[in-house]
Nucleic acid binder design. Structure first.
Lengths: 99, 99
DNA sequence: TTGCAATATAAAGATATTTGAATGTATTTG
DNA sequence: CAAATACATTCAAATATCTTTATATTGCAA
């Protein structure tokens, strides 16, 4: 992309998404949700983080349209729905596997 | 990627990179540098931002190994060298073009 | 060596994030 | 309905980030 196109492009939304992903816990949550939706307590157990912390991060991810929540009885299952985020998470997964 | 793998993976570095990209000005800088290296004043003129601001962002990008600086007389040419960042910038470019 | 252009760095103030602790809400089960 | 489980929200304190302004450095040319 050249200078002129950059000048007239708005990267606000993309930057916001990347910023949200730019936190180790949130990035782990997102990557962990790629293969399958998970509920809050499973995520918390897996990452060894307290429930409110996970909920707070999920609230952010939800607010930005990165994940969607779906209730299943007592549990709430989260899954990633944002196209750009799906792409990035898959790139990261590939990088991890090739190490 | 499943839960167990997430549990044992370290996403610190990747998160750091994404966080750095998660700022509109830095993201524009990075995307603008994909096609060709540019010097500080060109970037500043293009983005309409003051020089110290650009320099500071470039310093961050440099510190994280995202860009490299090369002096050319009075000017210093910056270019993107980080593989993951190159990939992400290209994805964003494609998304922009397809709008 | 003096001056200028390009870039870098520093300090300060404003703003935003992150986290933990406490509390609130919704749903199922007895 | 009451208790228990799973999750969400709120608030405040600590920390980090961003922007602006001022100043320093570096290289080149006269």
């Amino acid at each position: 992309m050249d200078l002129k196109r950059i000048k007239n492009s708005d990267f606000t939304e993309e930057a916001e998404i990347l910023k949200i992903l730019g936190h180790p816990t949130r990035l782990k949550i997102v990557c962990g949700l790629i293969e399958q939706g998970l509920c809050v307590s499973d995520i918390g157990d897996c990452l060894g983080e307290p429930q409110p912390k996970i909920s707070q991060h999920l609230a952010l991810l939800r607010a930005k349209g990165i994940v969607k929540a779906e209730r299943e009885g007592l549990n709430i299952r989260y899954r990633v729905v944002h196209p750009l985020v799906l792409k990035i998470a898959k790139i990261l997964e590939r990088e991890k596997l090739s190490d």
